[in-house]
Nucleic acid binder design. Structure first.
Lengths: 231, 231
DNA sequence: CGAACAATTGATCCTCATCAAACCTTGTGG
DNA sequence: CCACAAGGTTTGATGAGGATCAATTGTTCG
């Protein structure tokens, strides 16, 4: 199927780009398909390309020497990732990007974006806005991990996911599709603890959960837990 | 004492600025003195100004609703902070900046920097480089906090401080001046644990420590601990 | 139907936070 | 110049919060 360059305007960083810019980017893009469980790139690879996810879902993760993983970010359609090489010379990806579903993405050379930015300050600005958002989110998550107990972190994690990618289900409630392991990697705990906490919440009627699925029944109750206002 | 605008070139973000740029910035700067323990700004304040520390030492911290603090960054001379308002409209500071010693800083309106960047892509680029560095550091620290045990985190913290602001002492060894509480806030633990770990390391000859002071005797040993290669 | 994967739940253990008390160090004022 | 206060540090005792391990159950898909 042919790809419409104007769709690129849905990418935050290109929202203020001209039509010509979008066509130019599109002409320099390679389409890649990545199967569920496969990788766009690995932590440590030279950061030649940045990507724009056009369908599917992916995650950015970091793993330590023992192989334990943390989930830095979950990516949905029209999000850009791997673009720090547009700023730094000879950058390497600081994280691994893995497809959570069969996905497609556009790959564009970071060098190309770098050159475009020289003469298009609006792209630099929108990229800086994106980066500012990351910095703030990472600072918040860092503080949470350092100071909050696990139940509150899981609540905060679900609330963040809700605002970033929650899908309203027909019967009210918000649908999220993640494994316990995913949620554990996002909130800095283990899948066992996530399972226990969700079971407890289910008894209280806050959520329903199943295989790779959490349905949030009472977001307000989660907010209360996240703020430590309950019991 | 008169302030030499050319000193501003020591600020990473202005390293490629022209002499005229530096004079312009300087002409728009206000000098502020902040006593030890006082604040440049608080988390939640409107981010009108960014700062360049010209003398002293400061820290960026976030606190949660219960008042527990985490140290996001330690600032030394000629470092810039509070500049995210140059990117976002109506931004508020996401962290508090506290002077760790009697300090002086230049305050410049974020709006002014914003306008300068419109026509000076090299400043945008250098700011993006700085932001990229923060993102990577926060991602690393987040992973460490989520996956590493406390002794390794303290080792990593000291090594990071060493590379960022370590001062070689005359007798070899690297001098750092922080309280146990500071180190705890930087590595996500408590002052008691930091004290215990440093005592243990002192017995092993890795460090010497005193009031508000750690002297690193054997950096290589710390690297080993940070990589989990010891014992 | 069976294999592979995801989730649950109980039992156990370990790391580290917390609390308490005493000890050092530094600077200040009588 | 000494005494004292304030703040930083050490160390022990205790316990809670979760991680880890193991076994079982549930779900999905070829």
């Amino acid at each position: 199927m042919p790809f419409d360059p104007m769709n690129l305007r849905r990418v935050g960083v290109f929202q203020n780009a001209t039509d010509d810019d979008l066509r130019l980017l599109s002409a320099n893009a390679i389409e890649r398909s990545i199967e569920e469980g496969e990788f766009f790139f690995f932590q440590g690879d030279p950061a030649i390309y940045f990507y724009v996810l056009t369908s599917g879902k992916a995650k950015l993760l970091q793993s330590n020497s023992a192989g334990q993983q943390v989930n830095l970010r979950t990516l949905t359609e029209w999000q850009m990732f791997g673009a720090l090489g547009a700023v730094l010379e000879d950058a390497i990806y600081p994280a691994t990007a893995e497809a959570l579903e069969n996905s497609t993405a556009l790959a564009i050379k970071n060098k190309f974006l770098h050159e475009m930015m020289q003469t298009r300050p609006y792209i630099s600005f929108d990229l800086m806005k994106l980066m500012t958002g990351y910095i703030q989110e990472m600072q918040d998550r860092y503080r949470e991990l350092a100071t909050e107990k696990v139940e509150r972190r899981i609540a905060l994690c679900l609330l963040r996911l809700t605002s970033q990618m929650g899908i309203k289900s027909p019967d009210g409630g918000i649908e999220l599709s993640f494994t316990r392991q995913d949620l554990a990697e996002m909130s800095g705990t283990t899948l066992y603890t996530v399972s226990r906490v969700l079971s407890e919440w289910e008894k209280r009627g806050l959520v329903e959960s199943g295989r790779e699925r959490v349905l949030i029944r009472n977001p307000h109750g989660l907010v209360q837990i996240s703020e430590g206002l309950d019991q």
